[in-house]
Design a protein around this nucleic acid. Structure first.
Lengths: 219, 219
DNA sequence: CAAAAATAATAGTATAACTATCATGATTGA
DNA sequence: TCAATCATGATAGTTATACTATTATTTTTG
């Protein structure tokens, strides 16, 4: 399996991870977007929070849409890495697939946190805001320059296991992209519209649902 | 037979369906949002397109967010009505459920269109923009005043059939809300990120996928 | 230590998202 | 039928956002 982990350079003007202030932008940006929502989030507010200026942030990111895309991409980098860990040295494809579903739809194991100071905040941001990053008129341009390569490669890799285990199942990519998107959606529902789901923040059943669907599909 | 499809009164200041210019707002609004995307859509542009003024639109809608919520609610009213038609005079629960899945995840039958001049445009808008309406900081306030009652009642009704057919399945609401959301998501993918799905605009397989999942869950 | 690069401080522009006011044309109801 | 009411149009104004531009100052690096 080969999942390419690469920061897409089209998302920034200057790599924020190359400087202290850039990293502060990212980390404080995550918290600020989570606190305010992406609509009310502005570079001006972010600049104030990191004791810097709008102009400095604009030297790193063309606009706030790209800032959001960057953060989401960062999330997917972490997931891609976790997928590699979760499938390394495992022979059985069924077992590999199950581990992938855990990574893609489960809650991150607190013991394994630590790629960035607060990975759970980043996941929260993805749950809350990733739909807004995707559903824009610019999605085709972004796809053109490779922004979604990582996401596509993850879906491709995991759906390949499904194909291997049940070659007659006609919708492997749809199944995997569905389970990934559903995980975020159901966690949003569990907080804001609980009657639409059977998962709660206290007893999260999203992964169990996902594993069950996989099992049924492979039967 | 005349059916009044009524949208939640908290979404407007003055019922747009009570006047010609209000109806023009809605219909032209659908086209304009589809053409520009919700971010670039403004009341000023809408006013120009219907040869009216911003002030007039603001007399109907508090803001453009509520305008979007109104349109999405309108869509769900139509779906709710279709669900009633699709389950009327059918005894068999399995058959009822299957018909509901068709309404919720299939493409509308062109022969049955006609609630408004262009229902397909409204569906397109929902596919493209409904995530933005939901994922805001105001979702809890909106839920409080009943904006999502219709959506919740649809999920509740359909998931009740699932419960009846398989009382041991632990995630009926999650299953139905998943299939509903997935239908929009996959159709978005089929246009913009085709490698994430197995449906295409030419050969739409979203309903087939949904029916298959239901079948597997009930087995 | 000097040159270059990065950042801060500040100002400015265009547009969006409203709010306010007043005139005018259409509707209604006594 | 006429006056009162109401909806709409025309116009102006306010605040905030999403940038762009300029210059000064600090930091880094060769």
């Amino acid at each position: 399996m080969s999942i390419t982990i690469q920061v897409n350079a089209n998302l920034y003007l200057k790599d924020p991870r190359s400087s202290d202030i850039g990293i502060k932008m990212l980390l404080e940006g995550i918290d600020l977007i989570n606190a305010l929502g992406f609509e009310a989030f502005t570079f001006k507010k972010l600049a104030q929070n990191i004791h810097s200026t709008e102009a400095t942030i604009y030297r790193y990111f063309e606009n706030k849409h790209n800032f959001l895309l960057y953060l989401i991409n960062w999330y997917w980098e972490i997931i891609a890495y976790r997928l590699i860990l979760a499938t390394a040295n495992i022979e059985d494809t069924r077992h590999k697939l199950s581990n992938c579903i855990t990574v893609l739809t489960g809650l991150p194991d607190p013991a394994q946190l630590g790629f960035i100071p607060d990975e759970l905040s980043l996941k929260q941001l993805v749950i809350q805001e990733s739909g807004k990053a995707l559903h824009t008129k610019s999605v085709d341009d972004e796809n053109q320059v490779g922004i979604y390569l990582l996401y596509k490669s993850i879906v491709s890799t995991v759906s390949a296991y499904v194909k291997q285990l049940n070659p007659s199942f006609p919708y492997p990519e749809m199944l995997i992209s569905n389970l990934i998107e559903n995980a975020n959606q159901q966690r949003f529902f569990s907080v804001h519209l609980p009657r639409l789901t059977n998962s709660t923040p206290e007893k999260d059943t999203v992964e169990a649902f996902s594993q069950l669907i996989i099992q049924k599909v492979l039967e």
